[in-house]
Design a protein around this nucleic acid. Sequence first.
DNA 1: CGTCCAGTTGACACCAATCAATAGAGGTGG
DNA 2: CCACCTCTATTGATTGGTGTCAACTGGACG
Lengths: 241, 241
Amino acid sequence: MVLPGRAGGRLTPEERGILATLIVQQRSYEGNASLVSRGQPSIRAFILHKGWACAHRSLPSGARQILSVYVPGDLIGYPAAQAFPSEAVLHGHNVSTITDTEVSEIGIDRLSCALALAPGLARAMLWDHARANAMLEERLINLGRRSARERTAHFFLELSVRLGNGAAGHSDFYECPLSQYIVADALGLSAEHLNRVLKQLRLARLLQVRSGSVEILDRDGLVRLADFDSGYLSQQTAAVA
Amino acid sequence: MVLPGRAGGRLTPEERGILATLIVQQRSYEGNASLVSRGQPSIRAFILHKGWACAHRSLPSGARQILSVYVPGDLIGYPAAQAFPSEAVLHGHNVSTITDTEVSEIGIDRLSCALALAPGLARAMLWDHARANAMLEERLINLGRRSARERTAHFFLELSVRLGNGAAGHSDFYECPLSQYIVADALGLSAEHLNRVLKQLRLARLLQVRSGSVEILDRDGLVRLADFDSGYLSQQTAAVA
DNA sequence: CGTCCAGTTGACACCAATCAATAGAGGTGG
DNA sequence: CCACCTCTATTGATTGGTGTCAACTGGACG
């Protein structure tokens, strides 16, 4: 989910030009606004410039699962199935803003046509989806086999890296507008239990989560606790033997 | 993960020809053989013709999470990041066969080059990844917010649809070579507890799982229990308003 | 000053993991 | 043919992690 700033770097100037022509408009949204709704046909995608958002779904029981958290720079709402412009694809989840946001909106139909003309663009979309896939798999492992403490540590480490604080020597502090309720829904935990876990991590001098910001007190400790490996975020390269 | 039989239908004859030239060889594997290993550079993809396989990862604790179960017709091991042939991408998970299998192996480098030449092929890959993404999201909801009974019901319903038994009037019986240990690792449960859950579902006359086969006794009941909606599997279409 | 929301803490219940043991199926070798 | 082993399925007893319910706090805001 990283077209403009990251996979965007892979595009040729010509392809970047094509991308620019696809942008319908710049828009602002308030916090807690709906960008896409489950079941709705998908007609536009978003590039998130400022603010945070999330993809989520609710069950009949009322429980909510957050599938992805989006931070500035991410691409939102492009279901790759739109590679076939003749079909209208229905969104499988909702996307809502968390804070006030600024986005570029892109017409899906135009993007689809452009993919056929610009192979580089299609490859960039593939790259983006690969990264999204890798993140989803990591979250699957989180929810399936890690304890509440491990999940929580993993979540805030991933955010740290995605926000660019991952490199050695970088700051272990970042702004984070997520309420505990949101984090709990992302981790498949109750808000009360998450609160207790955060307290444990704070007392263990591993992680300090205040409202509005996160401070990583002991990155190595957290990495060990969560078995965190950031490779899936950077799509690291290696020499082929 | 459905190139040949399903997304393959979207390809032009010319594109199908390109795909055919990419196949390096047909091969057989025994059950419990390794197709790809985590950390390994990704140099080939597989089309699974016969038999079952799964993608999985193990944690330091020894716990294992199965990320995807592959059935005949699925495309395996193409990390979309390979859209950039100059880079070697490392696999994020392992893929192992479950039963004896027959596969076609495709060279990743050749596939990557072909993507640049055949936009239709790239779009087909996008379509495949969208479906894979949708399945992953559904599993995320499963692990995050559904009880053991609901997860189990959802799992066997999804398999039923993927194996082509989903349409009304179709058989509610299918062959399934998954041991309870494998299903448990896919659902994030202990094998013992899964066994108890299967017993409950059997006694409730909802689902009968024997070794080697699955019989859906009450599809409506299971669908209600699991809040199952197969839309994410078929990528259903709708008229654009 | 009241309301609302996020955060916090406590008591309790329960779902699911763990530990342990048994049984059956299939394979192997004596 | 039988003894033995391994793997899978099954069941019981017990523990523990996490959810639920409830109450309280503090800050933001009108």
